[in-house]
């Protein structure tokens, strides 16, 4: 029925000058943010280059940090960072998963929203508060646990503590203070709410039809959780854990408050003295020469690359999982 003299209308996505100006402003805003972000990454790389080209591969294998003598590397701080993050994740993941399951499956519906708010609030509590608590309260109470573990499991190299005799009841407890273990436990309290809120979000999206299907087949609550909620939330659990790991790697103030820095690889997590990349930057930025600054930049760049890889892996795992199609984390 279309007459031949009815040409297709031209569609104008632009509706006049104000729209073009508006779109220009939006593009400008996006471009500005992009420029800032690229500037941060680019400047870090540029400034780190001086130190990296001097130290070459020794940067990854050297333990000491003496940039003035040209002898520096991140082997010790990197191992310390990874061990602290590992301890943090080991404690945070069971706590966060348990809390997420409790809130989404077991808690009475009346208090559920309150609990969600409480967990979100905990993720916003400043890290210096956790650091103060860890330094003044927690450290004193966890020493007995450290001593107990090292007494009975000291034959495992990770839990070995030098310089003390477990058989001597009068031996001082100071060898157990300021350790990787304590710093990791305090950091675990900071990352657990973050993991918990991601995982709870995913758990609560498990389809009602499948839950009821499991119940209809005779499953009890744990059976339903195991066959529906946990498989559905697997991507969210892995992604949330890695997100927490990213935060644990970059945590500064709580770690600085608790540890006493050493620049050797410290594989004994219960023993006094460890180090991390972020605490290295916080402690050494003031006295740095130009080369020292460049070396700190290189350490910061290494830390940033590590958290970047972890975060991208987390978001791609969450996005690929069944539950992540609609979630935003």
């Amino acid at each position: 029925m279309a007459p031949a003299d009815d040409p297709p209308r031209r569609l104008h996505p632009d509706r006049g000058v104000p729209d073009r100006v508006f779109r220009g402003i939006l593009r400008g805003g996006g471009g500005l943010v992009l420029a800032i972000m690229l500037l941060v990454g680019g400047f870090l790389t540029y400034r780190a280059w001086q130190a990296l080209s001097l130290a070459k591969w020794d940067f990854v294998t050297t333990e000491v940090w003496e940039p003035e003598g040209g002898n520096f590397g991140i082997a010790a701080v990197l191992v310390g960072t990874l061990l602290i993050a590992m301890v943090a994740i080991l404690f945070a993941v069971p706590l966060a998963l348990g809390t997420a399951l409790y809130i989404s499956e077991y808690a009475p519906p009346r208090i559920r929203q309150t609990l969600v708010s409480v967990v979100d609030l905990m993720a916003a509590v400043p890290s210096v508060v956790y650091g103060l608590w860890g330094l003044f309260y927690f450290q004193g109470h966890v020493l007995t646990l450290s001593r107990w573990i090292s007494t009975y499991f000291g034959w495992i190299p990770l839990f070995k503590v030098d310089g003390t005799d477990p058989a001597d009841p009068l031996s001082t407890a100071t060898v157990y203070t300021s350790s990787t273990f304590i710093a990791g436990m305090v950091v675990s309290l900071m990352v657990a709410p973050i993991i918990c809120s991601v995982v709870r979000e995913v758990f609560s999206q498990a389809p009602v039809g499948e839950r009821e299907g499991a119940y209809a087949l005779g499953a009890n609550r744990w059976g339903m959780i195991r066959s529906v909620v946990l498989p559905f939330g697997k991507g969210g659990m892995i992604g949330g854990t890695m997100l927490g790991l990213g935060r644990a790697l970059g945590e500064t103030i709580a770690v600085v408050l608790i540890i006493s820095p050493v620049f050797v690889i410290q594989p004994h997590i219960l023993q006094n003295g460890t180090s991390s990349v972020s605490s290295l930057i916080a402690l050494r930025y003031g006295e740095a020469s130009p080369l020292g600054m460049s070396a700190l930049m290189a350490a910061g760049l290494a830390l940033f690359l590590m958290t970047l890889v972890v975060n991208f892996a987390a978001s791609s795992i969450v996005a690929r999982s069944r539950s992540g199609a609609t979630s935003d984390s």
Partner: peptide
């Protein structure tokens, strides 16, 4: 990517 930037950096 920038949300991964540690605050100290």
């Amino acid at each position: 990517a920038m949300t991964a930037l540690p605050s100290i950096v």
